[in-house]
Design a protein around this nucleic acid. Structure first.
Lengths: 149, 149
DNA sequence: CAACATTAAATGTATGTACATATATTTGTA
DNA sequence: TACAAATATATGTACATACATTTAATGTTG
């Protein structure tokens, strides 16, 4: 459905405004679908993203700083998201021996198992973009890169 | 900057995953810039969006239902965002006489004045997309529409 | 080495998101 | 008319975002 109909706004000031609103709307639309897929696993999108980063580091530890660096949303609060993962036994947090200001965060076997069990569902729901051809997906990515130039 | 460098992830599974991550990242990037512009006016992005809808209705009232219908994020809590606007005297809320379940929400003169004072700043910061040509902006919008088909 | 700055993470506070549930009013209908 | 269903909004709870401040450890420099 065209964005005009989706938000019941027949016209926009210009193509820039239209694209901007469409960006925000479509991203929200995608995230809503992903979040729904994650709910059955009792894990949120940010928690999942951090688990993925931890798996990427495994068996090396990550620090909060490293998580922030890798996260898509750099201003979110990695510290408190890790709290939730530790509470769910998907991660451990220990003081880093070589720098006692920092903490070493590891994914646990339970965390790795969770990611494995989510694999199918997540890749299925990631296909939110599969209405595009691969060429279109690449084109979209290029346009987005250009926005941030 | 390319998304690979932005989040320090050299490769992606495919163009779909890359575009998806880029979408989320770029939208966050844009919203952060907009939010910064709004801070000096002591108003948040959702509050601003609702004020705009109220101005669009002015001098007719809006109801919470109408706000939800028009909002980009339809699951957010219009009721509580209106609370904040009423507290800041930018809107009023009165029981609708013809249907006492509903509330009539009006923008106040102070609210209209706030929007006027923000005009310059907002259009300036909305130019986050002006790295694109108008054609590219339209192309982007079309790709986003296709994602939601 | 002492004083100060820097760094890493945690905490506090206000706001918003997502969803379930509650409350009040109105509508439909037996 | 009484009573159930639908409607409009508000409220509760858990989580996350955005940003300022705090705490602790480490570096730096006079």
């Amino acid at each position: 459905m065209k964005i005009e109909d989706e938000i019941k706004q027949p016209t926009f000031k210009d193509d820039y405004q239209k694209a901007h609103i469409n960006l925000i709307y479509t991203t929200g639309w995608l995230q809503l679908r992903q979040a729904a897929a994650f709910r059955e696993f009792d894990v949120t999108l940010p928690q999942y993203n951090i688990l993925r980063i931890l798996r990427g580091q495994h068996p090396k530890p990550a620090t909060v700083n490293l998580l922030i660096e890798r996260m898509l949303d750099k201003t979110s609060n990695a510290s408190r998201i890790v709290d939730k993962l530790v509470a769910k036994t998907y991660a451990t947090r220990t003081v880093c021996p070589s720098n006692r200001r920092a903490v070493d965060i590891h994914i646990t076997e339970a965390g790795l198992e969770l990611l494995r069990s989510m694999e199918g569902t997540v890749t299925h729901h990631n296909s939110g973009l599969h209405n595009l051809t691969p060429t279109e997906a690449a084109q979209l990515s290029d346009l987005l890169d250009k926005i941030r130039d």
